[in-house]
Design a protein around this nucleic acid. Structure first.
Lengths: 67, 67
DNA sequence: CCCATATGGAAAGCTTGGTTGACATTCCGC
DNA sequence: GCGGAATGTCAACCAAGCTTTCCATATGGG
């Protein structure tokens, strides 16, 4: 599972802390997701998509998919 | 988080067991997701969407969203 | 040189997702 | 009425998401 979180955050010039507060999670969670240490839960993925006004598919991509 | 899994499964006349095998999870997991006892992980949500040829947003809806 | 801000990451602990195995119920065909 | 298939649920367990606390490094301004 790879994601464009870091790019989207950079486009808005938000710190990991800023993003964490908007998503109502800890800064470490944002960091862990950005650095690929783990995947967000589905509810959190929806919050992320909502925040950026994108679909989950536009932010996260499943490497196992045969696109 | 509510989902249309049961409907999609019924449209194809698959048992929970059939669906579980296609998703490579246990039947109890399919049942728990259908009955809303918990939400799938993001990777599993992607597998479900791929299997039905839909987007995650077309299958799962976040009740907290202001649509 | 200090200090504040931003980032990466580890440890321990709680919560949630997922498994296996078991049991009960409903429904349908024989 | 009986047997088998489908579903709901529970208990016990392991794995993954997430939190808090802590430490390290980098960088930019004064």
């Amino acid at each position: 599972m790879i994601n464009r979180l870091r790019v989207l955050r950079a486009e808005r010039a938000w710190s990991q802390q800023d993003l964490a507060e908007r998503l109502d999670v800890s800064r470490q969670s944002v960091n862990a997701i950005e650095t690929g240490r783990y995947d967000p839960s589905l509810p959190l993925a929806f919050r992320i998509a909502d925040l950026f006004g994108l679909t989950i598919e536009e932010i996260f991509t499943n490497p196992n998919r045969k696109d």
